[in-house]
Design a protein around this nucleic acid. Sequence first.
DNA 1: GCTATTGTACTAAGTAGTTAATACAACAAT
DNA 2: ATTGTTGTATTAACTACTTAGTACAATAGC
Lengths: 122, 122
Amino acid sequence: MDWIFKEGQPIYTQIIAQLKIKIANGTYKPGEKLPSVRELALAAAVNPNTMQRALAEMERECLIFAERTNGRFVTEGGEVLDNLKRTLAEEFIGDLFQNLKKIGLDNEEIIAAVNQWAKEEQ
Amino acid sequence: MDWIFKEGQPIYTQIIAQLKIKIANGTYKPGEKLPSVRELALAAAVNPNTMQRALAEMERECLIFAERTNGRFVTEGGEVLDNLKRTLAEEFIGDLFQNLKKIGLDNEEIIAAVNQWAKEEQ
DNA sequence: GCTATTGTACTAAGTAGTTAATACAACAAT
DNA sequence: ATTGTTGTATTAACTACTTAGTACAATAGC
């Protein structure tokens, strides 16, 4: 399930989204050392510059931090991870409501559709 | 609420997504004539070429069709619109489950989160 | 102290998306 | 028949993203 990129969206933004998920689900835990830029780039089959750009962006968001010649680490502190999970979930759910409302569904219909989806699919 | 574009994704793909929603919610009804390429481009504050590209793509999907010098029309036939609405809704909901499962929520938790969101927000 | 690995920076080239400007053919409206 | 509007095509220029290649400073590990 690792490192699949779609067309129509910059790779570096997709890397950020997928890395956030990996942090949120514990693949990379707070305080843990990340693979090096070059390793990550190799694993994602992406140019090191592209991976570097994604990582630099996540540093600006304080999700990870770099130690000059030692490597990169996931930021520690329980709030960070909890905030990330909550923010991601709210983004996903908010987008769903926004989109479904645009095509004419109200709150009840949305909840019904989500329930039905959970039963029928997978 | 018309024609807002985000960064990080080609404009023509965002035009397609928003036009699909406009067809799905009845802004443009089956059989109805669409504004001309130039009008749409003006309304969306976008170059005519970009609008043309989005419209051409939607023709390939048979959602609209062009009459050489008369204009563009929404494809008629109830199935088309129903299929569109169902496809859009399934895409949105499917993405939600996929994303939330990645950060560790199961079906029950997802449904709970959606219910809570519907109560609390807006 | 040496070495390998780390993050970081830079330049050049290629590709895709966007805009601008222009042009043409077909036909509805007059 | 003429005119204006339609979809469509083409060319050029600009920007953003991506890749390739190279290089450097800092330091952990030995």
